[in-house]
Every structure is written in structure tokens, then in C-alpha cells.
Write a protein that binds this DNA or RNA. Structure first.
Length: 271
DNA sequence: CTTTAGGCCTGACGGC
DNA sequence: TGCCGTCAGGCCTAAA
């Protein structure tokens, strides 16, 4: 279940392996993803030189001399770098064969991911056009959240998971950041104070950066395995721990469904 | 405009 | 042991 740190770690791991490589073939073994992998994509990419691999939100953008590619890992997707004689697995959808004899495989059992052409300029693509600021970028802070949150009656947790507000904050890191900021996930976004949004923005950045840092230490595993080893072993303080004691005060953590997602919180620490 | 619900999928899990 | 219902999760899309 790649969240932003996993996607960024994947990008950092793969970028040096892909840059300046030539694509020999793209084999579409199973085009059934969130949207079908277009027929003709393989032909378009054959012989292309890879210029780079960047990230926007949880999307990976592969830039080549013969056009861009937009990748999303959805819920269960992963990319691995391996040699062609590595046994193929069920749900290996794509093989991107490189001129150095290695290949990249997209593995995605639940098929929520995608692989689509990305015509220039990338930022106008419908899937990218309405995205909010990057949480690790310079134009994301408490002021942004506060101003965007004016008049919002929905829960703050759903608000920060809204890709138009800030990208890349999934259920896990939203839960963790709200705990660290001392804000209950069910609070109306419009009722969270400026000071609280400052804390929240800081903690969103913090939990994501912490996860990326830890991701770097397990990068080798991440690229070779299927990404199912969990969140880099990052110590999650409250996510998935309803019923357990709060790591700060010892009160029993509760669970509520907020914005259609399980939300653990401490009734004492979070207000 | 905001907010909510539905849908897409498979694998893991629990109950019988 | 096997079958089946439920759940998880990102995020688009339609509808309220």
C-alpha cells in the first residue's frame, strides 16, 4: 500500500538505474489496471532513451525521448529491478526491458495502479492538473491549510487527505500526524485554529520525512521484494492500534470511521 | 463550491 | 479442510 514515502523511495532507488538507459521493449503482460494500459504504448516506447524519473503526489513520471509515462502504484503496486530470468509472478503486469540486460517489473495484484501516456506538458494532464501542493515542498505550511480550510465543515482528517488540499497524505500518515498535532480526526476543518494547523503541517512533513529516511535503509529490500514488508518498519504510534494504550498518556486509543476510513485517536491527547 | 457514496480489485482473515 | 462474507486501501467519478 504505497503511500508517498514508499513512492519516493521507489523513485530514488530506480532513478539511477533508469537514467540514460534505452528501453529495448515494454512487454504488457496484463493491461488490466485501473485504466487499461493503452495498446500502442509498447510501440511508442520501443527504443526510447529514459531521461529521468520524477514524482508528483503519488504518481511517478517517467520521461523518455519518445514521450512521458504516468505510473501509479495504487494500493498494492510495486516496481522491482531484476534480471530477465527472475521467475515471473502472478500479477506481474509490465516488463520494461532495458539495454543493460536488466528490467523493471510492475507488480499489482489489486490493479488500482495505472500506466498511461503522459503528453507534455505533464502538469496539465487531467490526473495531475488539480493536485494541491507537495507536503515536502516550500509552498505547504500551516497558513495554506488554514486558509484553504475556511468554511469547511467536513472532518479535518478528510480535509488533509484531499488531494486538492495537499497531496500524498494517505490514511496512515493522516492518522499519525493528527495524533502528533493533538487534533481529533473528526474535528471540522474550519474549526481548527491557525496554531493547530501550523503544528499539523509540521507533523505531516515530519512523519513523511521520517518514513522516507527509514525507507532509504531498507531500499534494497524494497526494490527486490514486493513492498509488502510494511511501512519500512516505521513505528506507527496510533494507526491500527485502537484498543491499545496511548503511547503518550496511556489512555485506551479509540477507533472511529472518519471520511470512510478507520481512524485511531487518543481521546485524551487529541482535542 | 463542498461533501458523500459507490466502485474498482485481490488477499487475508474469521466464522462456520 | 473448505467455503464464504467482510474488510482494507487510493482515488476517480457521479450524485447530493
Amino acid at each position: 500500500m504505497p503511500e508517498l514515502p514508499e513512492v519516493e523511495t521507489t523513485r530514488r532507488g530506480l532513478e539511477p538505474l533508469l537514467r540514460d538507459r534505452r528501453i529495448v521493449t515494454l512487454e504488457v503482460r496484463d493491461p488490466r489496471l485501473r485504466w487499461p494500459v493503452p495498446t500502442g504504448l509498447a510501440t511508442q516506447l520501443a527504443g526510447a532513451t529514459i531521461r529521468g524519473l520524477t514524482r508528483r503526489a503519488k504518481y511517478l513520471l517517467l520521461d523518455t525521448s519518445q514521450g512521458g509515462i504516468l505510473l501509479h502504484l495504487g494500493m498494492s503496486g510495486s516496481l522491482r529491478h531484476c534480471s530477465p530470468d527472475t521467475p515471473l509472478r502472478k500479477h506481474d503486469h509490465l516488463r520494461l526491458q532495458l539495454d543493460d540486460g536488466f528490467e523493471i517489473r510492475l507488480h499489482d495484484p489489486r490493479r488500482f495502479g495505472c500506466c498511461l501516456p503522459l503528453p507534455p506538458p505533464p502538469e496539465v494532464h487531467p490526473l495531475l492538473a488539480r493536485l494541491g501542493p507537495e507536503p515536502l515542498g516550500s509552498n505547504f505550511d500551516g497558513a495554506t491549510l488554514f486558509h484553504h480550510g475556511r468554511g469547511r465543515r467536513g472532518p479535518v482528517k478528510g480535509f488533509i487527505m484531499d488531494q486538492a488540499v495537499v497531496v500524498g497524505v494517505g490514511n496512515i500518515y493522516a492518522t499519525e500526524a493528527l495524533f502528533l498535532a493533538g487534533i481529533r480526526p473528526g474535528r471540522a476543518a474550519g474549526r481548527v485554529t491557525r496554531r493547530e494547523y501550523d503544528r499539523l503541517a509540521r507533523h505531516i512533513r515530519e512523519v513523511l520525512e521520517e518514513a522516507i529516511t527509514q525507507g532509504g535503509t531498507t531500499l534494497r529490500d524494497f526494490l527486490r521484494e514486493d513492498g509488502s514488508h510494511g511501512y519500512f518498519g516505521q513505528s506507527l504510534r496510533v494507526y491500527g492500534r485502537a484498543g491499545e494504550p496511548c503511547p503518550t498518556c496511556g489512555n485506551t486509543l479509540r477507533n472511529r470511521v472518519i471520511a470512510q476510513r478507520a481512524s485511531a485517536y487518543c481521546p485524551a491527547c487529541q482535542r
